[in-house]
Design a protein around this nucleic acid. Structure first.
Length: 304
DNA sequence: GTTCTAGAAC
DNA sequence: GTTCTAGAAC
C-alpha cells in the first residue's frame, strides 16, 4: 500500500502493513513550509482491512476531507478501489492562524506493491465518513421542515432540546471558516429563516427562548446553523461535550458570525475553543456547577 | 456526530 | 455492587 500525493509532487510513500510511517516537512515530501512539522503525521496501514490510521503529531492542523484530525488524535483513511485518479479526499496540512492552504499536502493511497504490474489504482474515499452525514440528512424528507432556493432546514437527528433545527445552505459550504463577504446575504437569510422556523415551531408557547448559532469547530461537514430551544430537555443530550458545545462560547451566535463576515470578510479561527468542551458543567441560567450530567439534567428541569 | 465499553467514581 | 465518563471505533 502506498500513500500517493494528489499533486504528484513527490514519489508515493510505501506503507508496510502495521508499520508506522511518519511524514512531514522533509526532502521526501518536498514540503518546505515550517508550519508543517517534520513529524506532522504518523500513518499505520492495515493492508487486510484496506485502511490506514492517521495520527496528527504536529501542532498545526491536518485534515481529512476538510475535517481537522486534531493534535494527538487519530482518524481513519480507507481505500476505495472504485475511485480513480481524482481522489475526493486529501490530507491537508494547513496553516494554523491564517487559514491558508498554501502548504497543503494532498495524498491518495495507491494500492498494490512495487512488484505488482498494473495494480488497481485506488484512491482514498471518505464519502461515507460520519462527518459527511448531514449531506444525506439534508435530503431526508422525514427530517426536512423547510426549503427554498438558498437554504434547507432539517430537524436535528439527535436533538439536544425540545426544538432543535439545522439551517443549511443549498450551496456546498464546508464550514464557517470557508465563508467570505460574498456570503453575507446568505447568512442573513439563514438567520431569518431560522427565526421564522423557531417562531412557527412553538407559537403556542412564546416564552420558549431560542438561540441561533454555529459551533466554533463543527464535527459535521456542510455549514449548519443551529436553531435550538433553551430548555435542553432531550434524551439525546448526554455528554459534557454536548452541553458545553451549546452553553459556552463554543456556541457562536449567528449575529457574531454575520458581523465578522460583514466587517472582516472572514470568520475568526476558533480552533482553540475545543478546550471549552472540557469545562465543568454549569447551569446556563444560574451558573451553578453540577457534578455530572444526570445532576445537571435534573437541575435544569426547574431552574428559571 | 453516535455507539460501545473499560475502568473510574461512587 | 451500580453509575458515569472518556476514549476508541465507526
Amino acid at each position: 500500500m502506498y500513500l500517493q500525493c494528489c499533486n504528484h509532487t513527490h514519489e508515493p510513500i510505501m506503507l508496510l502493513d502495521g508499520v508506522a510511517v511518519t511524514i512531514g516537512r522533509s526532502a521526501g515530501t518536498k514540503i518546505l513550509d515550517k508550519l508543517c512539522s517534520r513529524t506532522q503525521l504518523q500513518i499505520v496501514a492495515n493492508h487486510s482491512k484496506k485502511y490506514a490510521m492517521v495520527k496528527q503529531l504536529g501542532a498545526n492542523p491536518s485534515q481529512i476531507d476538510g475535517i481537522n484530525i486534531g493534535q494527538g488524535k487519530t482518524d481513519k483513511l480507507s481505500v476505495d478501489r472504485k475511485c480513480d485518479k481524482k481522489g475526493t479526499s486529501s490530507l491537508k496540512s494547513r496553516e494554523n492562524m491564517h487559514n491558508s492552504q498554501k502548504n497543503k499536502t494532498s495524498e491518495n493511497f495507491d494500492n498494490g506493491t512495487a512488484a505488482d504490474v498494473g495494480p488497481p489504482r485506488a484512491t482514498v474515499s471518505k464519502s461515507s465518513h460520519w462527518s459527511q452525514g448531514l449531506k444525506s440528512s439534508m435530503t431526508d424528507s422525514s427530517l426536512q421542515v423547510y426549503k427554498d432556493d438558498r437554504v434547507i432546514v432539517i430537524k436535528d437527528k439527535y436533538p439536544k432540546a425540545k426544538f432543535h433545527f439545522l439551517v443549511m445552505p443549498v450551496e456546498n459550504i464546508v464550514s464557517t471558516v470557508h465563508l467570505n463577504s460574498a456570503h453575507a446575504s446568505l447568512l442573513d437569510h439563514m438567520w431569518k429563516v431560522g427565526r421564522d422556523i423557531a417562531k412557527r415551531s412553538c407559537d403556542d408557547d412564546t416564552k420558549t427562548r431560542f438561540r441561533y448559532g454555529y459551533h466554533a469547530v463543527p464535527s459535521m461537514s456542510h455549514l449548519h446553523m443551529h436553531v435550538i430551544s433553551q430548555d435542553f430537555d432531550s434524551p439525546s443530550l448526554k455528554t459534557k461535550k454536548h452541553w458545553n458545545s451549546f452553553t459556552t462560547e463554543y456556541f457562536v451566535d449567528a449575529e457574531d458570525i454575520i458581523h465578522e463576515i460583514k466587517t472582516e470578510g472572514k470568520v475568526k479561527n476558533r480552533r482553540h475553543m475545543t478546550e471549552l468542551l472540557k469545562n465543568a458543567l454549569r447551569c446556563h441560567i444560574c451558573h451553578t456547577e453540577l457534578k455530572n450530567m444526570p445532576q445537571l439534567k435534573k437541575h435544569i428541569k426547574d431552574c428559571r
